[in-house]
Design a protein around this nucleic acid. Structure first.
Lengths: 243, 243
DNA sequence: TGTACATCAGTGAACGCGCGTTCACTGATGTAC
DNA sequence: TGTACATCAGTGAACGCGCGTTCACTGATGTAC
């Protein structure tokens, strides 16, 4: 309280900085809709934001750093959409409804932001390796999905044994295939290995379906993508053991 | 036979042309391993093949046309690998073995040719639309898969009813979601709609799994990708109704 | 078989362009006393 | 409150580079008679 302007002033500069940083990332995101991440032009972004190209270097040390910011933004946006969709279901015990709402929201987001989706789940950018910073935002989606399944088991809405034709593989066989470090951490201890595998598979199928749809591989085979997607996620729910 | 040299001579020139065309495509394919399709440089390809950049225009009217040739080559390579794997199974009635061999071959091909895989199943190239010519080679893989399932039904090795927890959806519901023109054409008439959907889903899951593996989304969740993939395709087979 | 002509592959220079990054600079904003 | 100094954002010129595509050309190969 002794120097009220000092922190406020520092924040003013810092706030301006944050704001312009955000503007740059937003402009880059728009560019991405036309160019693909590998050809993303720092100069074009600078132009869009009304700066000289060299000024961008006050905010990002390199093109790659800007790319990282884009990844984080997109992952967070998608993760937020999934979390919001899950949270929007009032009846928390109705895990089937949460499942459906969440997966639909993921697809809706992908369709609304195809270039962001391609950045995240399409071809990796040659010569660019995403840093550790991106892991946490990247993981948000699967965390939501795993949480729904975990809670489904807890409230008894999921009975994996129901899908009896899929003889639950022995833990050891599954342990050989999937790593438990990350999954256990994300899912909690009460999720049986069998269910982790099924959830991983469902997750893969959902993103595989969205990728196929967005990247044009379903043209000619699927006439109504909305209906097809619903059909897919409903089957996945049954295979996991939703009753 | 009257002028034996004339067709031979014409063929000589034509053969040289075909050969050099193939050399250019091969060089471009190698480049793709480092650059990604959107940044594929016609000049660099020309350099690799020992020509001046303008000479390439004798063979391809534009960069996009070269890209199309690459797509066709890669699709055919993958399709051929899938067909060969299926054909390599002696006991034709053992559709489960054919299923496993074919899907494993697809994954093996993807791992051996990651940049080709990304070209085919990764992000679309901005500003490039694949022409009709690519459809036929693109379709070879799913044709192999559908054929295995179709023959499985014919010899009684697949009984979709077995996967009883998945109540077969009424034809009308499924017809709304998937298009029958292409699928029917590819699969023949004797494949029930329910099985077409399951096969489409399995196909999507397989490519989703491969994409996740190659694009780095399974790092930390799956410790043994070989074992995981086998686990996935075995489950898919059971869900389709392989006994 | 020989000759005149047409086709074609490949050259090399040139076009106009945009790129990422560096650097010395100006002027505004923030800090210490 | 006022002054001297430090920090920082943004400028504009320059670097060296590679790109796709066009064009007039040369020389070799194929064709017709």
């Amino acid at each position: 309280m002794s120097h009220p302007e000092v922190p406020a002033a520092r924040t003013a500069r810092q706030r301006a900085r944050d704001q312009i940083t955000a503007e740059i990332v937003a402009a880059a995101r728009l560019r991405l809709a036309e160019q693909g991440p590998a050809e993303l032009s720092l100069r074009a972004v600078a132009r869009d934001v009304g700066m000289v190209s060299s000024a961008v270097y006050r905010y990002f040390a390199s093109r790659d750093e800007l790319l990282t910011a884009l990844l984080v933004l997109a992952y967070d946006d998608l993760g937020g959409a999934a979390e919001a969709a899950d949270a929007s279901v009032r009846a928390r015990g109705d895990v089937a409804a949460r499942w459906k709402a969440t997966l639909r929201a993921i697809r809706r987001w992908a369709i609304a932001h195809p270039s962001d989706y391609a950045l995240l789940y399409g071809s990796p950018v040659p010569g660019y390796a995403a840093p550790q910073t991106t892991i946490e935002p990247a993981v948000r989606v699967i965390v939501v999905i795993l949480r729904i399944v975990t809670e489904g088991v807890r409230v008894g809405a999921i009975e994996p044994g129901d899908a009896g034709h899929l003889a639950a593989a022995p833990e050891s066989a599954i342990a050989g295939a999937i790593g438990f470090v990350r999954s256990r951490e994300l899912a909690g201890d009460d999720l049986p290995a069998e269910l982790i595998v099924r959830t991983l598979m469902a997750w893969t199928t959902v993103f595989g379906t969205i990728s196929f749809e967005l990247f044009g591989h379903l043209v000619g085979s699927v006439s109504d993508p909305d209906a097809y997607f619903d059909l897919v996620i409903e089957r996945l729910a049954r295979e996991i053991g939703f009753r």
